[in-house]
C-alpha cells in the first residue's frame, strides 16, 4: 500500500525497518508469547497493568504482523506455508499441523522464509554439509542418530517450528531408511 507507514509496524515489533521476514516472524512469535503468557518478566509488574492494556498491546502486535506479512507477500518473498496458502497471523503458530516433516518440507519452509542455508549453519553451528544432507535426506552421510536428533531440533527452532514434532517426523523417516538398508 503506497504511503502506508510501515516503519510504525516494524517499531511495534521492535525491529529496524530493514528486517527480513524471518526476523519479523521471530519477533512476532516472541512478543506474542511474552504478552499472552505469564513469565518472570511480566509477573513482577502484572498488577500495574490491566488485562485491557495487555490485550491492547497484543492487538497492536497482531496488526503489525498482519501488515508486514502482506508487505512481504507483495514483494514476492512471502512465506506461503506448506499448503500454498498465504500465511495468516492466526495460523502462523500451527500452520504445519497436517504436514509430516521431511528434508524436502524443511527446505521449502526455509526457502519460503528467505533464509539461506549458511545462515542456519551460522546460527546453529551445524556444518553446512550436514544441513545439506539433512534437507536432501542423504541419511548415509549423516552423523549418528543421537547427534542427528539434536541437529534437527536446532534446525527446526531456527525456522520457528515445533521442534519436537519436526524431530519426531524426521527421525521416523531416518529409522525407516535404516531398517531397509
Amino acid at each position: 500500500m503506497p504511503g502506508e507507514d510501515y516503519r510504525r509496524y516494524f517499531e511495534i515489533l521492535e525491529l529496524q525497518p530493514d528486517a527480513s521476514f524471518s526476523e519479523v516472524r521471530n519477533a512476532y512469535l516472541h512478543l506474542k508469547r511474552l504478552y499472552s503468557t505469564e513469565s518472570i518478566v511480566i509477573h513482577p509488574i502484572a498488577n500495574e497493568f490491566s488485562e485491557e492494556s495487555r490485550q491492547e498491546v497484543l492487538q497492536r502486535i497482531e496488526d503489525a504482523y498482519e501488515r508486514l506479512s502482506a508487505l512481504f507477500q507483495d514483494n514476492g518473498s512471502a512465506y506461503t506455508g506448506s499448503r500454498g496458502q498465504p500465511l495468516g497471523p492466526e495460523e502462523a503458530g500451527d500452520v504445519h499441523e497436517h504436514v509430516s516433516f521431511s528434508g524436502e518440507t524443511l527446505r521449502q519452509i526455509r526457502q519460503g522464509l528467505g533464509i539461506k542455508l549458511h545462515e542456519i549453519a551460522f546460527a546453529t553451528k551445524i556444518r553446512l554439509q550436514y544441513l545439506e544432507n539433512i534437507e536432501s535426506e542423504r541419511f548415509g552421510d549423516l552423523p549418528p542418530e543421537v547427534y542427528l536428533r539434536g541437529y534437527i531440533v536446532n534446525y527446526a527452532r531456527c525456522l520457528s517450528l515445533d521442534s519436537g514434532r519436526v524431530a519426531r517426523d524426521y527421525m521416523k523417516r531416518y529409522r525407516d531408511w535404516k531398517k531397509k538398508s
Binding site: E14, L34, I40, V41, I42, S53, V57
Partner: peptide, 14 residues
C-alpha cells in the same frame, strides 16, 4: 538470552 529482549519490550510498551 531472550529475557533481555522481553525486558526491552516491557520497558518500551509498558
Amino acid at each position: 538470552i531472550s529475557i533481555g529482549f522481553s525486558v526491552r519490550s516491557v520497558c518500551m510498551k509498558y
